[in-house]
Simulated scan of single mutants.
Amino acid sequence: MGWEVIRVKMESPTPLASDIGQRVSIRLREDGGLRDILGILEALNSVRKKDGSLEKFDPVHIAAWRIVSPVSQKAGTGAPTSIRINEIEQSLENTWPAEEIITRGGWRYRLSSGFTYRANSIIPFGKLPLGQPLLPYSEEIQYAIKEFESRGLVPTFHLPLPAYAELDEALERDGWELIIDAHILIADTLDIPTPPLAAEFTFVVEDYPSDQWLAVQGDSVGKKIMSAYPAKYISISHRSELIATGRVADSDGWAVLSRIFIKEEFRGKGLARPLLGELVKNSPSTKSALQVDISNSPAIHLYATSGFRAHHIYRYRSYKG
């Protein structure tokens, strides 16, 4: 990660006690020349460098100094692809928490009451190619089938691709059926337009999923999962009736958008982009992510023309016995 100067302490020739803990760049006059040190200011005469070593200095030798801050990276850049995929998938999972999570090696079992595949599936996160299950692959598969079926759930895998393509191929060979392919789309929040609503519509912003919000797309069964994580619930009202909804929740710098829905009779009236804009306006995060079924061409077009771009695909496979 790069660094950028954010403040020059012209009013103070040396750091102050209030600056301890900041990342600083300090230029010292030494032996007739200049030397720079970069790190975390631990005391008024010492800096902890990136390699962990402590560099001490005499403040009277400071020629100039600055506080520096990390340059914000574009969404979906910086780390290797597999790490970025796991990072985004973890944020999506955090904001849609399963009722119970069991970690077995590098496979995470997400178990709930059956509402949504995300909260009722196994996601690999361990070392490629198979995610490092606790038991050898075939034995862990048998354990997974028994665990899900004992709870009245359909055994299902959530497979981020291309990272876990080999696991996907193994499951396909073993007869696990393809259920859904979906895109994870990402955007830099500042790239998402925020157009206003037409005069006859108004936004409603709530901190919880109200019965009226849930009724717009019949989500009452999901209230328990949605209420388990802090989020903003946005609606569009028309003549005192809620006719569109969306949810935004923040995790690790990502604004996760979900449950975006507009009643059919109000589609095509220019509501989708203002709704997206209002969602991100209610988040402090600089990056945004959402998921969309790969077959939903109108939604993909909307998001692609609203600043979003494809990051990866995920796939659900289920075992039907």
Results as ranks from 00 to 15, higher is better:
Arg151Gly: 02
Gly152Asp: 05
Leu153Lys: 09
Leu153Ile: 07
Leu153Pro: 03
Thr156Asp: 11
Phe157Pro: 00
Ala163Phe: 00
Leu167Arg: 03
Leu171Lys: 05
Gly175Thr: 06
Gly175Pro: 05
Trp176Ser: 02
Ile180Thr: 14
Thr189Leu: 03
Asp191Gln: 08
Pro193Leu: 10
Pro193Arg: 05
Thr194Trp: 07
Pro196Glu: 11
Ala198Trp: 11
Thr202Val: 11
Val205Pro: 04
Asp211Pro: 03
Asp211Ile: 04
Trp213Met: 01
Trp213Pro: 08
Gln217Pro: 08
Gly218Phe: 02
Val221Thr: 14
Gly222Leu: 05
Lys223Ile: 00
Met226Arg: 14
Ser227Lys: 08
Tyr229Trp: 03
Ile234Gln: 12
Ile234Lys: 10
Ser237Leu: 14
His238Gly: 11
His238Asn: 14
Glu241His: 13
Glu241Arg: 15
Leu242Thr: 03
Thr245Gln: 04
Thr245Val: 13
Ala249His: 05
Ser251Pro: 02
Ser251Thr: 09
Trp254Phe: 13
Ala255Cys: 06
Ile260Glu: 11
Phe261Ser: 10
Ile262Trp: 03
Glu265Ala: 12
Arg267Ala: 09
Lys269Ala: 06
Gly270Ala: 10
Ala272Asp: 03
Leu275Cys: 08
Leu276Ile: 07
Pro284Glu: 12
Thr286Gly: 15
Leu290Lys: 02
Leu290Glu: 04
Val292Gly: 00
